[in-house]
């Protein structure tokens, strides 16, 4: 499974977000690959799932994969509640 994490600049909060997702996924037995990127580069990149800070997610409207919007990037519970169900579903679909 390949996740794209997106923030304003693509080097700070998106990387932190990706690491949080990977660590959370690992705790639940899933291996997640991914990359952190900025909004401009995110469009058209191939992936299974996009996770973005909420103000960025609002601009990602015509994606073919699910887009998860995170309001509070410091809240690991919010990240888990929103992202883990999708990781579980995508894993089942293979």
């Amino acid at each position: 499974m390949y996740i794209l994490s997106v923030c304003g600049m693509g080097f700070g909060t998106s990387l932190m977000l990706l690491m949080d997702i990977q660590s959370m996924a690992k705790d639940h037995g899933y291996t997640v690959e991914g990359e952190a990127t900025d909004l401009g580069s995110a469009k058209g990149k191939s992936c299974d799932l996009i996770v973005a800070s909420s103000e960025i997610a609002a601009s990602l409207t015509d994606e073919e994969v699910p887009v998860v919007a995170i309001d509070n990037l410091l809240d690991k519970d919010e990240i888990k509640e929103k992202v883990l169900p999708l990781i579980e579903r995508l894993s089942k679909e293979g």
């Binding site: 923030c7 600049m9 909004l39 103000e55 960025i56 309001d71 509070n72 990037l73 410091l74 809240d75």
Partner: peptide, 9 residues
């Protein structure tokens, strides 16, 4: 880029 730095409430 805008308010991307407001990472939490």
């Amino acid at each position: 880029v805008g308010p991307y730095i407001v990472i939490a409430p």
